[in-house]
Nucleic acid binder design. Structure first.
Lengths: 250, 250
DNA sequence: TTTGTTTTGTGTAAATTTTACACATTTGCA
DNA sequence: TGCAAATGTGTAAAATTTACACAAAACAAA
């Protein structure tokens, strides 16, 4: 077809190109790919950012650490699959989850092409029990993680960069903290995630000026020094008031 | 296994749980899903943000507009697939492309489960010829787009929101403009994308203070008023100097 | 050639936000 | 009772953002 002008094609209706009727057959003709979800599960403990990892159960990656993941079930939305992985491994529901990126390098899996959708998740280490203790499932300090199975180190790095960015714009961090927290805990969390020291007075000023903290009237106990006030985060107020564009703050 | 303490299991090596040797067989056991890529291709013309759409070729979506997409070939990385779609339709290579999100609702495709990975793309409308003129492929003003085939309106909306955010942080916008552009064109572009009026003097001040513009010494012609200076963007300098964290600026 | 229209190009003052910085107070512990 | 460690608080300087107006350049129309 050299010329796009339909007027020159007298036997075809101008507005009626051939339409596909059998969509099921169309879809059946597509190549199919195995899909997995992989969760980068962040926690915060001992003033350090942690990630939940498991030993790979593949011979080829013997000894290497791996993200928690699973293949997607039939007709399962991927958000649900990621949720399921989390629930199966940590026993926690209602966990903060966000899709980050899809990784599709044809050789990323030694068993053939497998596409994976990476999620990152934030949860409070203290608020849950690891359900499955096989394969040495446990928390690792982010700083100490080196080589991993598959392209999981790459996925981890991208999710961490994502977290650093997101934390500047949205109050995600409180998912890593107890319901009631001291300002010191918030600051330590931000320092751990951003990997930098922050000025204490300016940090407090900033956070108080947003006016999303509820003073519980309570104080820390079990600390070997002057206890700090405990606050909770007013998610409701945040949802109602959040600005349309946000820079470094939220 | 009631107890996770491996010391109590005398017949199994502590560090040697059963490892999977045949990874190909493992992957073969996973369910498989058809994968497509869909490209939200933005352009800028007549001071309006445009999107390249095509009529759906499915009977069930007769008359509806659709994003440009295709299924992923065997062993094709998805970035490459998106690139391929762009090249096939617009004839352009080296186009700005970014993965945005994966959409996986089980009923999003009427022919059965199909997972799609959305990309957004920015290209200069004037710099290319549409290759395939079938199915009424052409540019639409973003503001006029209503119903679309599949979940493409949802995908479009998410990509547009993504663009609005990204444009505040990175100099993507210059992909939509000619190599040499006037400040007015840049501002019009930002106003179209952000859907708001901006102060001209402050806009100029902001952009000049970043010091990424090269004065070409040339001026607009073909304008019915005083011509503006033409600049080009110093991508090299930007790459060398870009800041680690960025707020509303870049 | 003159006049009108449109857009370019430019600077400053006020307001806001960010940064840097120090000391008294409270608690637990020795 | 004194020490160690962390909380809680304010201000001044610097940097950034905002609001805002007028002369000059080009073209079009008379």
């Amino acid at each position: 077809m050299k010329n796009g002008l339909v007027a020159e094609m007298p036997f075809k209706e101008k507005t009626e190109p051939t339409l596909i009727k059998d969509v099921k057959q169309l879809v059946a003709s597509y190549p199919r790919v195995p899909i997995t979800v992989d969760c980068v599960i962040f926690g915060f403990d001992d003033n350090k950012l942690k990630v939940l990892l498991i030993r790979s159960d593949l011979e080829i990656y013997k000894g290497k650490w791996s993200l928690l993941g699973d293949f997607a079930h039939d007709d399962e939305e991927l958000d649900d699959a990621a949720c399921r992985v989390l629930e199966e491994r940590t026993g926690m529901e209602d966990v903060y989850l966000e899709q980050v990126k899809t990784f599709s390098h044809p050789n990323r899996h030694p068993g053939g092409r497998v596409l994976t959708v990476a999620y990152f998740s934030l949860l409070n280490i203290k608020h849950h029990q690891l359900k499955i203790l096989e394969n040495e499932l446990h928390w690792h300090s982010l700083k100490n993680i080196r080589e991993m199975a598959f392209d999981h180190k790459l996925i981890l790095d991208e999710c961490y960069a994502w977290l650093q960015k997101r934390i500047m714009e949205h109050p995600l961090g409180f998912n890593l903290l107890p319901k009631k927290f001291s300002l010191r805990e918030v600051q330590s969390l931000y320092e751990a995630i951003l990997d930098m020291k922050l000025d204490r007075r300016n940090f407090r000023k900033k956070f108080f000026s947003m006016d999303f903290f509820i003073d519980t009237g309570e104080y820390e106990d079990d600390v070997p020094h002057r206890p700090g006030r405990l606050y909770s985060f007013n998610f409701q107020k945040y949802e109602d008031n959040k600005r349309k564009w946000t820079g470094i703050d939220f």
